[in-house]
Amino acid sequence: MQQLRRRLTTGFVVILTMLGSLLVGTLTAAPAQAATRDGVCDTGEICFYYNSDNSGSISDHGTADLADYGTDPATCYVFRTVGRAGHDQCIKNNAASVWNRTGVQVRVHYNSDFGGTWDTVAAGAKRNLTAAVKNNNASHDVTPLRTETCKNSFGNPRSCAGAVTWANNQVGATGWGGYCDRFVANAYGHANSGSTSAIVHWGQIPSTHRNAGDRSVPAGGLAFFRGGEYGHVMISVGGGTFVSNDIDGYNKISDATIAEVENEWGYTYLGWAQPWFQVNH
């Protein structure tokens, strides 16, 4: 009988030990499985708010790039803080303010696939989004930041690569004094740009195709400046090099950089744009 009791007692202790191990394992595993997108802005996250001044429901994200927030209520990224304005609504074109707790820069884009104008949000910044993307947000990327490529989706006769080849072949040519906007239009196969000047051209390009202040201009992109009466525009051929008229002597086509135009002419760099021309719009 005593042997039976010992066996039962031993078995009971083994069962309790196994149950205890399972409970400890379950309790230990819980934090690792906790949801990261919980509507709370934690350290290491970029957080979008439905309302200005960091109020309303929150959509919190880790440090991965997001190319498209989506628009289908069944699958889109939504604001997750229950009981606040905007809860469960898609965040695309609905974010008004931001808190960047990732520790690095984050860029919020007007278009999907990291396109169009953007707002660069510094690490630790907690503020309203700039007017360019406030309630017009479609994607974001996290440092190291992506560079938008040249996209010839505007019906131009030449492609971005074709325009670059044409421009490079004109280096050393003359006869272009004062015709910067015509030069870049010719690069894309147009007789003229359809605009009266470079500065007018910049203003006519939709903001979705302009990248204000960005100096990482892809080959084929058009770099614009404010200065003088007409401004200036030149075409990127990649690697920080551009082809421009007049910078190496009036009337002549030569290689150039953004810094040369700023330093030699005192012009203000505005940013770069996709090859959009008024002539075919």
Rank of each mutant, 00 (worst) to 15 (best):
R5Y: 12
R5F: 13
R6A: 14
L8D: 09
T10G: 14
F12M: 14
M18C: 11
M18V: 13
L27I: 12
T28N: 01
T28Y: 08
Q33G: 15
A34C: 02
T43C: 09
G44Y: 05
E45S: 05
E45Q: 15
I46A: 01
C47S: 03
D53G: 02
S55T: 15
S55N: 14
S57R: 04
D60K: 05
T63I: 04
A64L: 09
A64N: 12
A64D: 15
D65H: 11
A67H: 09
A67I: 11
T71G: 14
T71P: 00
D72R: 05
P73S: 12
A74M: 12
Y77D: 12
R80S: 10
T81R: 03
T81C: 01
G83Q: 06
R84L: 15
G86N: 02
C90V: 03
I91H: 02
I91D: 10
K92I: 05
S97F: 09
V98C: 05
G103P: 01
V104M: 04
Q105C: 03
V106F: 00
R107F: 11
V108Q: 09
Y110F: 13
N111V: 04
D113A: 15
T117A: 13
W118L: 15
W118K: 13
W118T: 10
D119W: 00
T120S: 09
A123I: 00
K126R: 06
R127I: 00
N128P: 00
N128I: 05
L129K: 08
L129S: 01
V133H: 06
V133S: 01
P144I: 09
L145N: 06
R146I: 08
T149S: 10
T149V: 12
K151D: 10
N152W: 03
N152D: 14
G155Y: 15
N156C: 06
P157D: 13
P157T: 10
R158V: 04
C160E: 07
A161Y: 06
A161I: 04
A163G: 13
A163D: 14
N168S: 14
N169G: 03
G172D: 13
G172C: 13
G172H: 02
T174E: 11
G177I: 05
C180R: 07
D181T: 07
R182N: 12
A185P: 12
A187D: 15
Y188V: 01
H190G: 02
N192D: 13
N192G: 07
N192W: 08
S195Y: 14
A198M: 00
I199K: 03
I199A: 02
W202M: 01
P206H: 05
S207F: 10
A212T: 14
V217I: 13
P218K: 00
G220E: 10
G220K: 09
G221R: 08
R226Y: 07
R226C: 06
R226F: 08
R226L: 07
M234R: 14
V243R: 09
D248P: 05
G249V: 04
Y250F: 13
K252P: 02
T257H: 03
T257F: 08
N263R: 00
Y269E: 08
Y269Q: 00
G271P: 08
W272L: 04
A273Y: 04
Q274R: 01
Q274T: 08
Q274I: 04
W276D: 02
F277Q: 02
N280H: 13
